[in-house]
Amino acid sequence: MKVATVGTGFIVEWFLTSVEQNEGAKCVAVYSRKETTGRKLADQYHVEKVYTDFTEMLKDAEIDTVYVASPNSLHYHYALEALQAGKHVICEKPFTSTVDELKHLIQVAKAKRLFLFEAIVTRHMPNYRIIREHVEQLGKIRMIQCNFSQYSSRYDKFLAGENPNVFNPAFSGGALMDLNIYNLHFVMGLFGKPQEVRYEPSLAANGIDTAGVLLLTYPDFQAVCIACKNCEAANYTQIQGENGYLLVSGATSLLQEVMLNLKQKQTNIGTEEIMPGLYYEVKAFVSMMKQGDLDACYRELENSLAVFEVLYEARVKAGIHFAADEETSS
């Protein structure tokens, strides 16, 4: 996998570190609108090529994969242009701003027989596989609680009257898209689509959700998913069943420790994940591409689409509107 990156934020640095740690992956180019910003990132990771023209970068025959980590609202446009140029795409979460955008990307990827991945770490973590293997021991599930909260590094600027992308409806920001999507992937990866979804957000004056509670209703249980960008919390996930419970420490993007409690007997069943979270998703993407396993890729896309349909329904029901909604409707 010879990848070019789009974006220069901290998540790109995490991704490039994981690329360096994975055999079979190499970054060969960096794209940034500013040469100085792109060059700084490229030099940090020993990447030779820096592009300031995205279309020109797509003409580079050495590049076979484009990693998109731009502001959320731009994911669709960068991913679509890359696919149309014959490049595989890894797109940061949330995949797109609307369901129609995601469906179009999937349609193009399948028509061109290209790989298209959502960079969502939760599904690829070793501890998530362990949770999936043990969840049936809990018996009939009765309640799930997820809390992923962190005080945003940009929240003070937002309070001061600035308009950072992550708190801007024009850039498809907010707590639901940025944090609760991890909780949603966690729950739906185990239990599928809920019967009903409701989102109760804390809305700022500009209409963006700085925090919120996502309620997923299943036939026998409910999942309460909390995400806050305006305060901290002891992040954890708890799956409660009639036989006991699973307690997962850390955010649903980390899954740091997994404790299984059955009839008052507690066991640590998790594995120590010594590599950064993005390492595992990059490893999975490299493996699928090396094997040419498009079927596995497209199964993952079905999961991503299902999650995004619920995410989108929750957002629309809560009255949170993005600029991309207008583009879709027109």
Rank of each mutant, 00 (worst) to 15 (best):
E232W: 13
A233L: 11
A234P: 06
A234F: 13
Y236P: 00
T237L: 03
Q240Y: 10
G241I: 05
E242K: 08
N243D: 06
N243P: 02
G244C: 12
L246S: 00
L247Y: 14
L247K: 13
G250N: 03
A251I: 04
T252W: 00
T252Q: 06
T252I: 08
S253A: 13
L254W: 07
L254I: 10
L254H: 07
L255V: 10
E257N: 08
E257P: 02
E257I: 07
V258P: 00
L260I: 11
L260A: 04
N261H: 11
N261P: 05
N261D: 14
L262V: 11
L262A: 04
K263N: 15
K263I: 09
Q264H: 13
K265P: 01
K265F: 04
Q266S: 12
Q266N: 12
T267R: 15
T267Q: 15
T267F: 12
N268D: 15
I269Q: 02
I269K: 02
I269C: 05
G270S: 08
E272C: 07
E272P: 03
E273H: 10
E273S: 08
I274E: 13
I274N: 11
M275R: 08
M275C: 08
P276H: 10
G277H: 04
Y279P: 03
Y280R: 03
V282C: 05
V282Q: 01
K283R: 15
K283F: 13
A284R: 10
A284Y: 14
V286T: 09
V286C: 06
V286Y: 02
S287K: 15
M288E: 04
K290S: 14
G292R: 02
G292T: 09
G292S: 03
D293H: 04
L294N: 12
L294T: 10
L294S: 11
L294F: 15
L294Q: 14
A296G: 05
A296P: 00
A296D: 00
C297Q: 03
C297I: 06
R299P: 03
R299D: 12
R299S: 08
L301M: 14
E302F: 04
E302A: 06
N303G: 10
S304Y: 09
A306Q: 13
V307E: 03
F308P: 00
F308K: 03
E309P: 10
E309T: 08
E309G: 09
V310L: 06
V310M: 02
L311E: 01
E313H: 05
